[in-house]
């Protein structure tokens, strides 16, 4: 009985050794195989669409006929013929990203820091409140803000200003191109506490409390010094993530101005963003090649800015 068992074991061991040395085992147990599910899904969902859009950007494609290769023509048209893109979309997106990206980032950090000071239960409630604008999406935001900035005397802001006597007749906030864009920026700031904010809050809560105690012993005098010498250095990865999210989020914004003003385009293209332009060409005019080229331009811009933020916040790698 025992001998048989031993024999069996021996046999099995022999087999397993044999198997281990065989080619098949090497393939099956290869470390890259463990990466396969991720690599497969990543290529299917992210890499392939990016690659396809990069290829499409060099073609003329109207979703019906087979795309025809046109070389760099789409890109040349974007920068030389497309006045709206160069004169409105790029400056608008740049200004928006500059203001909402930086101010929103600072705002997120500040709010996260404030929330780190309160008790956990209240903190959860506050977090939910502050995070909610960014999950509702542009259309939902607009529903709220349209009431405030409505152009007739029933709009909250108009009513208030009329009551004070600051203005004599209601201002068309949402139809005046000069006012519309600042409103878009305001809404952007209001909803800027997004994923980056959550990450920063989490990072801040994770900082070892003993560091602060040690800092106090070492001569840290006030809260500012605490923030600069302990908090920020301890949460550098979260800061980096927040910066990347802020940049990407600010550049990918679209649809606020249109939703606010109504119609297909906002008055005089005020608040018209690069993504609005891409959507317009892609899903209204069905010029997919051109729309893909626009997104590639945006991608390159955001990529460069992300490299800069990695250089600034990331470890030197």
């Amino acid at each position: 009985m025992k001998i048989r068992k031993l024999k069996l074991m021996k046999k099995y061991q022999n087999f397993s050794i044999k198997f281990r040395d065989s080619k098949i085992s090497q393939i099956i147990n290869h470390p890259y195989l463990f990466l396969l599910p991720y690599v497969f899904l990543f290529s299917l969902i992210i890499l392939l669409p990016t690659f396809i859009s990069a290829v499409l950007s060099t073609t003329h494609f109207n979703t019906v006929q087979f795309p025809t290769f046109v070389g760099f023509k789409n890109f040349i048209d974007i920068f030389s013929i497309d006045n709206i893109f160069v004169q409105n979309a790029i400056p608008n997106t740049f200004t928006y990203a500059l203001i909402v990206g930086t101010c929103g980032y600072i705002f997120s950090f500040f709010v996260a820091w404030l929330l780190a000071q309160v008790t956990p239960k209240v903190r959860t409630l506050y977090t939910l409140c502050i995070y909610s604008p960014s999950i509702t999406g542009p259309v939902m935001m607009v529903v709220v803000w349209k009431v405030v900035f409505s152009g007739d005397q029933r709009g909250y802001l108009n009513y208030l200003l009329l009551q004070i006597g600051f203005i004599k007749e209601p201002i068309q906030f949402l139809q005046n191109p000069e006012i519309l864009f600042p409103i878009v920026i305001l809404i952007g700031l209001w909803s800027s506490a997004g994923l980056g904010f959550l990450a920063m809050l989490a990072g801040m809560l994770n900082i070892d409390k003993t560091l602060y105690e040690a800092g106090a012993i070492d001569g840290i005098k006030n809260r500012w010094q605490e923030i600069f010498y302990i908090t920020i250095p301890s949460m550098k990865p979260q800061m980096l993530f927040g910066a990347v999210m802020a940049i990407v989020g600010a550049f990918n914004i679209s649809g606020i101005a249109v939703a606010l003003s109504g119609g297909i385009t906002p008055p005089q293209y005020a608040g018209w963003m690069i993504m609005d332009h891409a959507t317009d060409f892609g899903f209204v005019r069905y010029e997919m090649g051109y729309a893909a080229a626009i997104t590639i331009v945006l991608f390159v811009g955001v990529f460069i800015l992300n490299r800069i933020s990695y250089k600034m916040f990331g470890d030197n790698t």
Partner: peptide, 15 residues
């Protein structure tokens, strides 16, 4: 002027 210039030369620059 810039628009005309870009129409003619942007191809090479992109390349």
């Amino acid at each position: 002027i810039r628009q005309e210039w870009m129409q003619n030369n942007l191809n090479i620059i992109f390349l």
